[in-house]
Amino acid sequence: MTAATITARQSFTETTARATVTAQERKIAFSFRNVTKRFGDKTVLQGVDLDVHDGQFVAVIGKSGCGKSTLLRLLAGLDKPTSGELVHADETKDQKRTRIMFQEPRLLPWARVGANVDVGLTGIAKGVEVRKKSLDILAEVGLADRSEEWPSVLSGGQRQRVALARALVGHPSILALDEPLGALDALTRIEMQQLLERIWLSKKFTAVLVTHDVAEAVALADRVVVIDSGRIALDLPIPVERPRRHASPELAFFERQILDQLYKQKTP
């Protein structure tokens, strides 16, 4: 019981510290400036303006086809905006790293778990250092003893944890998450949310989570951005202290606001 209290208190203090820093510096991690993206004659994003602060956890939510995944692909540099620009704050060579995690783990089936994590250090570290860093990060996601296994013997949640380890091993400044928990069962998903929150609190990267699960968004994020027809329809801060309790009345209040926004258009 004492251990649990200490952990809770630690993360509480950390959150408070984080809030103070954000308030003081307000350093920006990246900004979308009037970004428009078209595929052929279909406009997916229309004039999006979005500033995200360093270390912030932003959830992007919207119905399918609203352009939220496109937003993430632009952020990760997988696509280029049709017009407007995307500015990264840290242009120094090591800090610029943005990692993306997908709904599928995308592990190499022919590489063992440890070697899959090594992929995250491509061009960053070499030799013995790689192994050490990979094992460290695997321990953090709770898979220290699985580094010599093939991915095919892991469960869906474990594979996604390997993918998370691979994304984090190179210490990215921004982690983009494209519905990474969407394919998991409800209980595994809650475990993964807690793991994600714990790691985000300790590593202090900027997290952008695309999801269609409103409860997940309010449970994890500092701020929820709702996208509708390619535009930002709602930008809502979630000033709830961590650790947060699933389905608490406070979270339910924010959840309601987001759902109202999402369904407003549907029934005029």
Binding site: A76, L78, R99, I100, F102, E104, R106, L108, V119, G120, T122, G123, R166
Partner: peptide, 12 residues
């Protein structure tokens, strides 16, 4: 192709 894209993202 998803694995190839993954490899590109990780700077291979």
């Amino acid at each position: 192709p998803q694995l190839v894209e993954m490899g590109r993202i990780y700077g291979m």
